[in-house]
């Protein structure tokens, strides 16, 4: 049995209300709240980045179950906001936990780099190359001020340790669907990303998630009714309901893992953190479908079953996702600009 042995998340304490962003840019406050179904988004503190979020998420995972550092054979960190252009985040993680013989690498694939990390670790464990591996999805994403993404791009992350011993959530199967689609990109040296208008919805998010989910359910011989929970990538608070409806899922299956209305889109952290929120409340025997989406474009789908081991697992040793969502400090737009280093100083 290969699956999740422990997991942990981290969401920065700061939030900005989307109504405050709308006030700043002269948009109707109804636009983000009703149009996107996002009330607020998380903001990293001035001294936080994708690496510090990754470390906090991984430490939370290790608080729930300590895995000896020498048994961790791989560390994959998925992010589109790695602190350095050249110098891996994964080697910093290896140093922090003392796993000096781990295969360490950074991954990038817009919002699905975190699930790509999970697939890599899953494969190495399944192949018998390693005993345990760390997969992290983490981001401190940034939209152009005043752009639609300014309402959603946020910060957070989740770490999974995947192995064969002491599995609390078995990964029954994972599949992917990928095409070359120009829905969202950022060229080297550009500070903010661009998006391809009409390419962003139907031909990108919906096509890839539906294709990956259908492929997985066909392979497993399942329908939407076989799952207790479903987690979709959540660039806003509306798309997951729309894609869920088309695949036959209900609001009740979606809600426990839908975080974007309160913390925004944590990019590579989004699907992993939604899954983390579901693991926080799930019971042995619960079945979970998780489907990520990354622009450019691709989706990774996972069929997961919670095991009896969950009963013995020390979930309370680290903060739960919804508890971190509730612990919020609201800031204004000027503070947000300061924290995000977007104030230009003229010499």
């Amino acid at each position: 049995m290969v699956g999740i042995v422990t997991y942990g998340s981290y969401i920065p304490i700061y939030r900005i209300k989307t109504a405050e962003i709308a006030r700043m840019w002269g948009d109707s406050p109804e636009h983000p709240e009703k149009g996107l179904n996002i009330q607020s988004k998380s903001v990293p503190g001035y001294d936080e980045d994708a690496a510090t979020i990754a470390v906090e998420a991984l430490r939370n995972a290790l608080r729930r179950k300590n895995i000896p550092s020498e048994k961790i054979g791989a560390i994959f960190v998925g992010s589109e906001s790695h602190p350095y252009a050249v110098k891996p985040t994964a080697s910093l993680i290896a140093e922090v936990i003392g796993s000096y013989n781990a295969h360490a690498a950074d991954l990038e694939f817009a919002c699905k780099a975190g699930t790509a990390a999970m697939q890599n670790v899953y494969a190495m464990v399944k192949a018998g190359m390693i005993e345990y591996g760390v997969a992290i999805g983490t981001d401190t994403s940034q939209g152009q001020p005043g752009d639609a993404l300014d309402y959603s791009a946020s910060a957070g992350g989740t770490a999974f340790i995947i192995g064969k011993e002491g599995v609390i959530a078995e990964i029954n199967e994972t599949v992917s669907f990928v095409t070359d689609t120009p829905d969202f990109w950022r060229r080297e040296g550009q500070r903010y990303p661009s998006h391809g208008g009409r390419f962003t919805g139907e031909p990108a998010y919906f096509k890839h998630i539906i294709s990956a989910a259908k492929l997985l359910m066909e392979k497993m011989g399942t329908t939407a009714k076989d799952y207790d929970y479903v987690v979709f990538h959540q660039p806003n608070g509306k798309f997951p309901y729309r894609v869920g409806k088309r695949l036959g899922f209900t609001k009740e299956q979606i809600d426990p893992g839908l975080l974007t209305p309160y913390i925004g889109n944590t990019y590579s952290g989004a699907t992993p953190t939604g899954l983390s929120a579901v693991l926080d409340i799930s019971k042995p025997g619960d079945r979970i479908l998780a489907v990520s989406f990354g622009s450019g474009a691709g989706s990774d789908a996972f069929d997961i079953t919670v095991t009896e081991e969950m009963e013995r697992f020390n979930r309370d040793a680290a903060p739960k996702v919804w508890d971190m969502i509730k612990r919020a400090k609201y800031i204004d737009y000027a503070t947000y600009l300061k924290f995000r280093r977007m104030i230009v100083e003229v010499d």
Binding site: G45, D47, E48, D49, A51, T52, V55, Y84
Partner: peptide
């Protein structure tokens, strides 16, 4: 907690 402590300008290393 684990945070950025200092950074050596915009091009230098980040100290955690």
């Amino acid at each position: 907690v684990f945070r950025r402590i200092a950074e050596d300008g915009k091009a230098g290393i980040i100290q955690y």
